[in-house]
């Protein structure tokens, strides 16, 4: 980490992300994990909005934003343009490609473009920063919003009590494409993230990393608690850190005992409406999932 910190960041300060937002650190860490030139395609979302307000630009690396749902298809074209220019000797340099978006741009509206790009086997690193809702537009639920979450479109009322459906497991879905490298990482474990980003950039063919990114206004948390909350997500098993390399599952972080999920929930306003019984239901889901992962039983289909 010390070595990474010495590098000139390729995502500069002066961006307009909220105080306490983690994605500038996620982006810096990922870009610092390779010494090669990286061309970035970014989906519409918080990251794009705060970093590219004309005439300013936080990206110290070539960057393109086209629309919300097409970052993966945009980078497909760029990678192919690189291939032919390299083949014809018009470009000598080795260049890496990073496609980055939130859970809206990757899990939901951009899912088709992502899946198509994975199937076409472009040599691209795809990163989802998962803040578990459409935070940019004001905390509406997404497919990645977990069970029980209070959002502006799954609000807590007399009859309904937050999101009543499970989180869509994009990491498993991406892994099911059979690509060579898939990983889950967290803002709280930057060394682990950097190791994974390095592997992803070194992978020949598609690689995907899903990074947990607690959102200060969306999760209703204190701005100095972002990293702590991400850490508790990992320690409680709500966000396991793992890799699937060439189809082989590896759990990267195995505490001797999981922290209760309520420790993770209690620092967040988005879960404060949950009853003791509701928290227990979620705890049970996490415990069963964790048991499966400890056995290395990653591919067992979950059903609730």
């Amino acid at each position: 980490m010390k070595e990474l910190a010495k590098k000139e960041p390729r995502f500069s300060s002066g961006h307009r992300a909220c105080a306490g937002c983690g994605f500038p650190q996620i982006v810096r860490t990922i870009l610092a994990s390779t010494d090669k030139k990286v061309v970035v395609a970014n989906a519409t979302g918080c990251l794009e909005v705060v970093s590219t307000i004309y005439p300013f630009n936080s990206w110290k690396t070539p960057y393109i934003h086209s629309a919300f749902e097409n970052a993966a298809s945009t980078i497909s074209g760029i990678e192919k343009a690189y291939n032919i220019q390299k083949r014809k000797g018009k470009i000598k340099e080795d260049i890496k490609f990073l496609c980055i978006g939130g859970d809206g741009g990757m899990t939901d509206i951009g899912f088709q473009a992502l899946s198509g790009a994975l199937e076409r086997w472009h040599d691209v690193v795809y990163v989802q920063y998962d803040n578990e809702a459409y935070q940019n537009t004001g905390v509406q639920r997404s497919g990645a919003t977990p069970l029980g979450t209070n959002t502006t479109t799954t609000p807590v009322g007399k009859i309904h009590h937050g999101k009543e459906l499970m989180k869509k497991d994009i990491t498993r879905i991406v892994a099911a494409h059979g690509i060579p490298y898939v990983a889950q990482a967290s803002l709280s474990h930057l060394e682990d993230l950097s190791m994974k980003a390095k592997k992803a950039f070194e992978t020949k063919g598609p690689a995907f990393i899903n990074v947990l990114q607690p959102c200060v206004p969306g999760w209703k948390i204190a701005s100095n608690m972002t990293v702590e909350i991400a850490k508790r997500a990992v320690e409680s098993g709500a966000w396991p850190l793992y890799e699937v390399k060439n189809g082989n599952f590896k759990l990267n972080y195995k505490p001797s005992k999981l922290r209760p999920v309520k420790d993770y929930f209690k620092l967040q306003g988005r879960f404060k409406h949950l009853t003791e019984k509701e928290v227990q239901i979620i705890q049970k889901v996490i415990d069963e999932e964790w048991k499966m992962l400890l056995k290395g039983n990653y591919w067992k289909v979950k059903s609730y």
């Binding site: 061309v39 395609a41 393109i64 086209s66 629309a67 749902e69 097409n70 993966a72 298809s73 945009t74 980078i75 497909s76 074209g77 760029i78 192919k80 343009a81 690189y82 291939n83 032919i84 220019q85 083949r87 018009k90 088709q112 473009a113 899946s115 198509g116 790009a117 199937e119 076409r120």
Partner: peptide, 25 residues
């Protein structure tokens, strides 16, 4: 000797074209 991208939709077709064009193709 073109790089032909057989995309999964027209939305991706035009998106890939835009990306490729801005990458000098």
């Amino acid at each position: 000797d073109t790089e032909l991208i057989r995309v999964e939709s027209e939305h991706s077709a035009i998106s890939a074209c835009v990306g490729a064009s801005h990458a000098g193709a």
